[in-house]
């Protein structure tokens, strides 16, 4: 069940970051918990997918830039192209936004009191 825009937005960025953390978390768990076995298969597959996505983004970025450069008539039609999807600025903004949103949620979690809110009412 996916709602809204699966694949797009800051969600994708969030999952990429989560994947980047996985190997470090595995190392930490392996070192600190004697019974923990490093989940090589799961981590390597997910890290490979995430790496391929990042490489795909870089390739996409290059491809679109080349297409834009080739089409001079389009390029000259705008004065400030820094907000175009093919520049790094939207990615930087998305990252900053993601960090801000997550920080706000963590702050809320920190200051709000834990209540039993799971009473079932049918």
């Amino acid at each position: 069940m996916n709602v809204g825009l699966p694949g797009a937005g800051i969600g994708g960025l969030y999952y990429l970051i989560c994947t980047a953390i996985m190997p470090f978390k595995e190392v930490f768990l392996t070192v600190t918990k004697p019974k923990h076995k490093f989940r090589y298969r799961l981590v390597s597959i997910q890290v490979s997918i995430a790496s391929a996505i990042v490489i795909g983004f870089i390739g996409m970025y290059q491809l679109l830039n080349n297409l834009i450069e080739a089409d001079l008539s389009l390029q000259t039609s705008i004065e400030n192209d820094s907000f175009l999807p093919t520049t790094l600025l939207p990615i930087a903004i998305s990252l900053a936004l993601l960090i801000l949103i997550l920080a706000i949620v963590e702050l809320f979690a920190l200051v709000s009191k834990k209540k039993n809110t799971v009473a079932i009412k049918k």
């Binding site: 809204g4 937005g9 800051i10 969600g11 969030y14 949103i101 979690a109 709000s112 834990k114």
Partner: peptide, 27 residues
């Protein structure tokens, strides 16, 4: 229904927040 409760469930609160953002603002 669960907004107060899941606020105290690490990771779930993050994915739900990100999903809310993407489904509304990003849409």
């Amino acid at each position: 229904l669960h907004r107060k409760g899941i606020l105290h469930v690490p990771f779930l609160r993050s994915i739900v927040t990100v999903m809310c953002w993407d489904a509304s603002i990003a849409s």
